[in-house]
Structure formats: C-alpha cells, structure tokens
C-alpha cells in the first residue's frame, strides 16, 4: 500500500505539473481527490488494516492527500493569475473617451477674489464690514470732508435717487465708493478699529470695455494710536505679496482725496516685468493700484473719534480691476452679463 500511495502521489504531481488550464486541473482534482478516486478508496480500506499497518499507512495517506491538495491550490493560483492576465491582455480599452460628467456649478470670479481678499485681511486681524449701497449724501460726501461745492465731487459722478431728500442727510445717492462705511463703522464701533469693506459701488459714467456704472471696491481702515504711513506700506506689501503669491513691492506718490491727509496713490511693482517696464505697466515698472492716506481729522470727527488721540489710515482699491488683471478679462461688462459661457470658465 505504501508503494501504491507513493505511486499515486507521483502520478498526481506529474499530471498537475503538466496541467495547462483550470478545467483540466478541476478534472485532476476529481480524479485524485474525488469520492471515487483511488486515494479515497484506499483510505476507506484503512479500517481493514492491522493496527500496526494503520499506524504507518494512516498518516502516510493523509500526508499524500494534503500534499496533493496543496499542490493543486498552488497551481490553481498560478493558473488563475495566468488566466486573468490573458484576459486583461485581450481587453481593449479607450482611456481617451471622456470621463463621467459631474454637474458642478461655478462661483463668480468677483466672489472668488473677494473671498481671497477677505481671508488675507481677516488673517491680519481685520474685521469685514458692510454698508448700504443706497447711501445718503452726508455719508457719501460731507461726512468724508467733501462739502457740496467741492471740486472733488466731479471726480465721482453720482447717480441720484429721485425725490429723496432729508435735512440731515441731503439727497439719496447710489454710493460712489465704499468710503461711507468708514464713518458708519467709526460711529458704531469707535476706536481702535481694523476693518475692510468690500462692496458694490456706482458711477454715473458712460459704459465701455473698461468702464461700467457698477463695480466693486474694497475699503480698508486702520485706526489706533501711532499708526503711520510706514504701516500702510507694510500691510499693503504683505497683502499683495500673499495675494499674488510672490514678493510685491509698493510705492507711494502724492494723490488727492479730500478724506485723507496726507493723500497718496499706491502703485505696486509690475509682476510681469519686475520693474523693468513693459506694456502692462505702461513702461513705468509700476502698476497703479489704489488711493489711500492718513484719515483726515474731519473724517475722524464725523465718526466720533478724537483725532488728538487716534490716527490711522484708509485705502480703497478696485476689486473689479483686480479680477480683470488676475484673469486677463478685457471687457468689464462680461462680469455683469450673466453669460454662462463666461462664468463656466471660473
């Protein structure tokens, strides 16, 4: 019997080794391990053997069985892997066909940049404030040191609301800048103050590719003790560098706005040419960015803050312009067109 078992094992091994596919392996499994197989039958006969024989043949037959099972499993694993590989190799697949479409919407580019601006200033401890878009002449002009006959009113062509007049407030206007919120915020919160105000503003101005009646500005205001122009330079350089993701320098030059004194215009170093001069910066190396200055004592007084005790600066820049610069948009009117062909690009 012993020999018989050995023979079975060898025969099985040989057949398994030669086996080329899963189907014949299955047949081999049945042939050697099935109920009617020689090995099974042999094992059935164990009970007829003498105890001594049993001691030898019993374990041996189990050993043979286990050995064959293991061998079959290993071979099956190998054959299965071969089969999958064969199948994979024969499969055609076009990876260039389009991916499944997910219906994502789009956030308006103005909202996206506004968010970035708010985030950066917010990280520097500035609160984000709001104010009404329909504003009184008082807050839009007088409160900002721009009396009725001031030539500076020409700089800001104004839309007036019909038949609205108040003794205290004057006529009702569409705010021409976000600056009215300076006074409103000072009245509400007093000093010290660290705020920015992004918002929609209006100008009575003929429309073309670079002018629109409606655009967005960001106002900034920092009031404390000992706040200086040097700080304005520092904060704006920090802001612009973060916004553009590279180091940006800022430059001041004199500018005139009745609500600040000294008044300055702030330029930043051209990002395209690094101050060498190119068409974007009109060969000056600098890009005009915003008006700013130290808050005029009259404005602090309008807001109920004592100019002897507190000082600070304010600025206002065009968010719309920033968006147009960032994305190379050449027609401002696209921003308010509601055209999905435009909006879906963002």
């Amino acid at each position: 019997m012993q020999e018989n078992l050995k023979k079975i094992q060898n025969q099985a091994l040989q057949e398994i080794d030669q086996c080329k596919d899963l189907k014949s392996l299955q047949d081999i499994e049945v042939k050697y391990l099935g109920r009617k197989s020689e090995l099974t039958e042999l094992m059935h006969k164990l009970k007829d053997l003498s105890p001594e024989e049993k001691k030898v043949i019993g374990p041996l037959s189990n050993e043979v069985k286990t050995y064959i099972i293991k061998k079959i499993e290993t071979t099956r694993g190998a054959l299965e892997a071969q089969e999958i590989e064969k199948q994979l190799n024969s499969e055609l697949f076009d990876i260039t066909a389009p991916g499944t479409k997910y219906d994502l919407g789009h956030i308006h580019p103005l909202s996206q940049i506004q968010y970035e601006v708010e985030k950066i200033f917010s990280d520097m401890g500035f609160a984000v404030m709001d104010g009404p878009e329909v504003e009184s002449e008082y807050y839009n002009f007088e409160g900002l040191n721009i009396p009725g006959d001031h030539p500076a009113r020409d700089m800001q062509d104004t839309f007036f609301v019909k038949d609205k007049m108040s003794d205290r407030h004057g006529r009702l206007v569409l705010r021409t800048h976000t600056s009215p919120v300076q006074v409103r915020t000072m009245e509400k919160y007093g000093a010290p103050l660290r705020v920015i105000v992004p918002g929609r503003v209006f100008r009575y101005e003929a429309t073309d590719a670079s002018h629109d009646t409606t655009f967005y500005q960001v106002e900034g205001l920092l009031i404390d003790k000992n706040i200086s122009l040097a700080h304005l330079k520092g904060v704006m350089a920090e802001f612009l560098s973060r916004l553009f993701g590279k180091e940006v320098k800022v430059r001041f030059r004199p500018g005139y706005f009745p609500f600040v004194e000294p008044g300055i215009e702030l330029d930043f170093s051209c990002l395209i040419c690094n101050e060498k001069g190119c068409s974007v910066c009109k060969r000056t190396g600098w890009v005009e960015f915003m008006g700013a200055g130290m808050v005029h004592p009259n404005v602090l007084k309008s807001g109920g803050i004592d100019p002897k005790e507190y000082q600070g600066w304010a600025f206002g820049f065009g968010l719309t312009r920033l968006v147009m610069m960032r994305y190379g948009i050449d027609d401002i009117r696209l921003l308010q067109s509601g055209d999905l062909r435009f909006l879906q690009q963002f």
């Binding site: 609160a127 404030m129 660290r194 920092l222 404390d224 700080h231 330079k233 520092g234 904060v235």
Partner: peptide, 18 residues
C-alpha cells in the same frame, strides 16, 4: 515717500469682530 520703510504695525492679537 520712497524713503519710508515698510513696517508692520505692532497691534495686539485680537479676534476681529465677527
């Protein structure tokens, strides 16, 4: 104005108004 060096203000760390 070019002779003014940029500086960051030394202000207390304060959470902005919500």
């Amino acid at each position: 104005y070019d002779n003014i060096e940029p500086k960051l203000p030394e202000l207390p760390i304060k959470l902005p108004l919500e």
